[in-house]
């Protein structure tokens, strides 16, 4: 078993243990009958997972992935403060600016203006579609 498989198996075991604990210890027998059946089966399969000869897990390119997750997480947290459209425009611009290919134009200001323009047009199109046309609620924020 390689180290990546070991880590994922340990995580699955921990999740299974939490499920078994919350179904059998925290819950009463009447309301937790079905979760108990499922979590017990999960526990048995988790034990079997330790003996499975698995293939190596796919490696993760954290260097390129984590900034994206951080920007998107900030967007989710900012939704309630800035509202959907303002937060969307900011996350759109930030993500496309951060993820720039080396082959793109070297003229920083030109790239910045184009991406800002696309972010604005995209957000405005979302506003037109969701709020004006479909009349659907979006997170409003404080402003």
């Amino acid at each position: 078993m390689n180290s990546q498989i070991k880590i994922s198996t340990v995580i699955v075991t921990l999740v299974s243990a939490i499920l078994v604990y919350s179904s059998f210890i925290l819950g009463d027998s009447e309301n937790y009958l079905f979760p108990r059946l499922i979590s017990a089966t999960i526990a048995i399969l988790t034990i079997m997972l330790w003996f499975e000869k698995g293939e190596a897990d796919k490696s993760t390119n954290f260097k390129d992935l984590m900034p994206g997750i951080a920007i998107a997480s900030a967007f989710i947290l900012l939704l309630k403060i800035l509202g959907f459209y303002l937060a969307s425009m900011i996350v759109f611009f930030t993500l496309v600016m951060y993820y720039t290919k080396p082959t793109e134009s070297k003229d920083f200001w030109r790239v910045l203006l184009i991406k800002l323009g696309v972010a604005f047009v995209f957000t405005f199109a979302l506003y037109g579609l969701f709020t004006l046309l479909l009349k659907v609620h979006t997170p409003e924020g404080l402003f």
Partner: peptide
């Protein structure tokens, strides 16, 4: 891909909230 990713993200958030 960067435009596609952010487009999916925004649609996913909107779709979920709605």
């Amino acid at each position: 891909d960067n435009y596609m990713a952010v487009g999916i993200l925004l649609l996913a958030v909107f779709g979920t909230y709605s």
